[in-house]
């Protein structure tokens, strides 16, 4: 009950600070651009495949288009923008004169962190549902192929966000600074985890062009293991959208583990801190 009021308060704040409006405007712009792009060039290409009368060809083309929409760069831009937007939630809450009052209310510190976490996830889920849902509708209407699997990308993107957002919460509590939180988390997202992802792919392949020393290799593997695997999760999302088998759920599990650790540390630290 009180938790619900708290989450609602965060949404009201996002509304009042025009955060929701900004997201809505930004995403609408993307949608308009996509409508524009599809009407001009893509559909011609798809039309040609249609004329080849091969239904498989059309599906293939639509999936390629959709896989492009949820590929690495758009994924990074969308999630990074949501991380930037939500990075101020915790530092704003911790401002002197506000946090005192909040902590005097009958809501436990653990619930406050959970509330912040849920609020961020709900906000991002709804935003992605709006953006990717409308894109899906447009693509499906234009091409006649309703690829339900594309909608899973809403869940996957929200999940990738949730994993990184847990680090935003911890760093926000530790630093109380939105700017620092944004910088550290964006660096973590790109290039740190991206380079580790590439390094891991390299180790798993048989090419041995570049030689890493054993220490470097162990270190890289270690950090790859403990840090979130946003880029692997994007691969998994891609596999699902294009109806391909997912290589393995290991990266998802270890990312969720990272999230659990970040949240637990946040809750532990927040519970013992003086304000």
């Amino acid at each position: 009950m009180v938790l619900y009021a708290f989450i609602k308060g965060i949404f009201k704040e996002a509304l009042a600070k025009k955060i929701l409006l900004t997201i809505f405007g930004f995403f609408t712009l993307i949608i308009v651009l996509i409508i524009f792009a599809i009407t001009n060039s893509t559909v011609d290409g798809l039309q040609m495949m249609l004329e080849s009368k091969s239904e498989g060809g059309l599906k293939e083309a639509v999936m390629m288009l959709q896989s492009g929409i949820v590929s690495g760069i758009p994924m990074f831009m969308l999630i990074a923008s949501m991380l930037i937007i939500t990075a101020s939630f915790i530092p704003d809450m911790l401002k002197k004169g506000h946090i005192d009052l909040l902590l005097s209310k009958p809501i436990s510190r653990t619930k406050i962190i959970i509330g912040q976490f849920l609020a961020g996830i709900i906000l991002v889920f709804l935003s992605f549902l709006f953006l990717l849902g409308i894109i899906w509708l447009i693509v499906s209407l234009k091409t006649g192929y309703w690829n339900i699997n594309f909608l899973y990308s809403v869940l996957w993107f929200t999940l990738i966000f949730a994993v990184l957002y847990s680090a935003v919460i911890l760093i926000g509590i530790l630093s109380r600074s939105s700017i620092l939180t944004i910088i550290i988390n964006l660096l973590l997202f790109f290039p740190i985890t991206w380079l580790l992802y590439l390094a891991n792919r390299y180790f798993e392949s048989d090419q041995k062009g570049i030689v890493f020393g054993p220490v470097a290799e162990t270190l890289l593997k270690f950090f790859y293991q403990i840090l979130p695997k946003a880029w692997n999760m994007q691969d998994m999302c891609d596999a699902i959208v294009t109806h391909n088998p997912v290589a393995g759920y290991q990266p998802l599990i270890s990312s969720l583990l990272f999230m659990a650790v970040m949240l637990s540390v946040s809750i532990w630290y927040f519970n013992k801190k003086d304000y």
């Binding site: 009950m1 009180v2 009021a5 708290f6 308060g9 704040e13 002197k96 009052l101 209310k105 009958p106």
Partner: peptide, 24 residues
């Protein structure tokens, strides 16, 4: 609290409403 601060985009009524809800 001393030096209490509320989100300044709220109206007086909304401040009472928000903290009232947090009080259950």
């Amino acid at each position: 609290p001393e030096n209490h601060q509320y989100p300044n985009y709220l109206t007086g009524e909304q401040v009472i409403d928000y903290f009232g809800r947090l009080s259950g």
